[in-house]
Amino acid sequence: MNKVKTKGSIGKRVVLGLCYGTLVLFMLFQILPFYFSFVESLQPETYRPGGTLHLLPESINIKNYLTAWQGSDMIMGIVWSLIYAGGFTFVTVIIISLVAYVLAKKKFRGQQFVFLFFMSALMVPGEILLVSNYLLITEIGLLGSPLAVVLPGLVNIFGIFLLKQFMHTIPDSVIESAVLDGAGDWKILTRLVIPMSMPAIATYCIITFVGQWNEYLWPQLALNSVSPFDPIQIKLLMYRPTINGSENHPYASVLRTAATMITLLPVLVFYFSFQKYFTEGINVTGLK
């Protein structure tokens, strides 16, 4: 009896050890390319590759970061990315909570039809809209303007669906008593429904913000090649440093990786500040 017990616990320990091992291994897979880029980004100007794999930089050169920061005009990229991601998130969250509130908590003729009308967009593929919205933006003269970057995606159907599901859990009696107290729709929405839906709204905002921050394809089309309004992602893609006229010079690669690290840093800081919204947010989205 005793023997069986010990055997079981050894087996369990082996399984547990294997689990830890697998998790650590895959964490390494994820980190390694970034780690090597980080090492590369600190290499000195005299660095020449070949012969060995550098696990540590030859010497730590913070100066690379300054050169890359100035050369890529990253500061304007960050400013515009903040404007796009912040502005977009702010407006879209107002729009989708308004729509979700009306669809979840009001009763009116044609409600079901309006809901299905919005939901039909889940079928519409983004790549077709990419082309037709480009034509539309061109025709109404918004091509190259920052407004064109944020305008098309404001009505987020997935967000409406998610928030509507969440708002169904708010009891009708709460809203009825607010109506009896003489509150209008706008007041009910901003003072009652939005605060009560905060877990879902916060998750939506954070995911939307990062999504917009990381976007490159539509901004590139909407801004029409190199533009003063380029967001950070395009600044990174456009950064092609040359040393002695060559893009393949080892130090050019060092500067590019430094610019990459600069772009990566804000996302990592944002992630570790709001980490629980990313890894636990899925519970709010209704999937048990």
Partner: peptide, 24 residues
């Protein structure tokens, strides 16, 4: 989870660096 937040532009630069045709 964090790699889910890494943008296409960053992944591009990392991939270009990993598979660079020279010894870099």
């Amino acid at each position: 989870y964090w790699p889910a937040l890494v943008s296409a532009a960053i992944t591009t630069q990392i991939t270009l660096y990993v598979f660079n045709p020279t010894e870099t």
